[in-house]
Design a protein around this nucleic acid. Sequence first.
DNA 1: ACTGGTCACTCTCCTTTGGTAAGTACGAAC
DNA 2: GTTCGTACTTACCAAAGGAGAGTGACCAGT
Lengths: 136, 136
Amino acid sequence: MRSVTTAQEVNDPTSSWDPYARGCPSRDLLDQIGSKWAVLVLGELGRHGVCRFTQLRQQLAGVSEKMLTQTLRTLERDGLLLRTVYPESPIRVEYELTPLGQTLRGPLKALTQWSVQHIEDVLDAREQYDERTGQR
Amino acid sequence: MRSVTTAQEVNDPTSSWDPYARGCPSRDLLDQIGSKWAVLVLGELGRHGVCRFTQLRQQLAGVSEKMLTQTLRTLERDGLLLRTVYPESPIRVEYELTPLGQTLRGPLKALTQWSVQHIEDVLDAREQYDERTGQR
DNA sequence: ACTGGTCACTCTCCTTTGGTAAGTACGAAC
DNA sequence: GTTCGTACTTACCAAAGGAGAGTGACCAGT
């Protein structure tokens, strides 16, 4: 068992993960999957199925190669995507979601859609806030 | 109209927000709402309805006062939560979700649940990855 | 043999963000 | 008048992120 064993969970090994607890792996994971580039990488792989490095770099306009590599490695390590190297010339590397990664599509799509659907409300709210606080 | 007007969207002013586009406000918003502390603050306010500063600081174990204040201000400005000051002594400040903030509960809850439900799979995947790459 | 091109990184430098801890403002209670 | 509680600010430093040049493997052309 890998569960972080503390006093209160000794008799309850299955339900001990709490993102609100400091240092809990589930908090770190939540942070990872909600991070800027991870959301977009997973979203893109969810829509296109299989992608190459350069393709992703173009779709996620503005990502640096360093961050793209870093994000892809982390997601691969977490078992969310599969990285396949074809030793052709020039080299070809393909990325695709694993079954585990697929299970994240729904939640992430919901979040992405929310940001598109409500961005105008948010921009309005910001304007009002700035007027309110700017006057004083 | 606040929409960022570029060539391809001149005849389509309503559906122009794209989180995959560099500098699009919806990308920034997605980044905000998916950020570490914002997720937890919104989650906590979703569960408890109304919270005070100190209460939030305790529930979100590990957050610094600086980051909590900063996160709360940003969320208030974005119209996701309401901040009410009661000029008693000692001062009392209450935070609660706005109707707009309520609409985020679903998506964020899904994400949080995912991280709890799949953290073990991810930890397994990491172990395997480290073995694979550590050997070479 | 040598130049140039492609792809997927990798490295370095510098800016921005985040964390730690101490300080501030206000009235109330002792 | 000193201490307490509450909700912040501020100063400082370490860690993460972004910009851009460099690397290595391979091959096509000259």
